[in-house]
Computed example of a mutant assay.
Amino acid sequence: MGRKRDRPDETPQTRLSDGRIARVAPSEITSGFEVDVDGTPQSHVDLADPTHLHFEYVARMGAVIDQLPDGPLTAVHLGAGGLTIPRYIAAARPGSRQQVIELEQLLVDLVREHLPLPRGASIRMRIGDAREGLGRLPSALRGAVDLLVSDVYSGA
């Protein structure tokens, strides 16, 4: 049985550039949180256990990441959402360097305020279009990453 939200009117939210509403709310199923956009769950984050990958497609990404050689990774993420996969890599592969490109500054601000990143995680944020952002990555990253994650959200 899901947990009842006592005060849903106090759920942290923001209006994105296209008018949709992004929210961060406690999960009704697990101990984590969900980021949803206009009511469609987009990310699940468990701050106590960032290796818990609740959504099936995200768990599949984690399974692929786990097949890479041991040790820190250099990763680029197209799309941020709740930063679930960057958090997973930071926990499972300490010392990893990560760049995230996200279109929506207000989404990043909402997530970072209400679902803070772990201390010491080397996760750098860039705001802008993913395709354009790839062209502006530091030269040391161009063609030299271990992992490129494309998880750009475009609606239900």
Rank of each mutant, 00 (worst) to 15 (best):
G19E: 10
R20N: 13
E104G: 09
R136W: 01
V35D: 06
G81F: 08
P86G: 03
Q67S: 12
I29T: 15
D9T: 14
S154D: 15
L147I: 10
D109A: 13
I127N: 06
M61T: 05
L16I: 11
A144D: 15
S27L: 05
E113K: 15
G19L: 13
A121G: 01
I21Y: 00
P69A: 01
S17N: 12
A75F: 05
I123C: 02
I127S: 00
D109C: 02
T84P: 12
Q99V: 15
D9C: 05
R124K: 11
H52L: 12
D38Y: 01
G81L: 01
T30C: 09
A63N: 04
D151K: 02
G155S: 11
S17E: 13
V100H: 10
L47A: 13
P118W: 02
P12F: 02
A90W: 09
P72G: 08
D46L: 08
V108Q: 04
I65R: 00
I123S: 07
Q67F: 01
F33E: 01
D49E: 15
D46P: 03
L147Y: 12
D38E: 05
A80L: 15
L117W: 00
P50R: 06
L47E: 12
D146P: 12
Q67P: 00
S31H: 14
G155R: 11
D109R: 08
A130W: 04
G19N: 11
G135M: 03
V58K: 06
V152K: 04
G135H: 09
P12H: 12
V149Y: 04
L137E: 08
G79E: 11
L117F: 03
V45G: 07
S154T: 13
L83K: 10
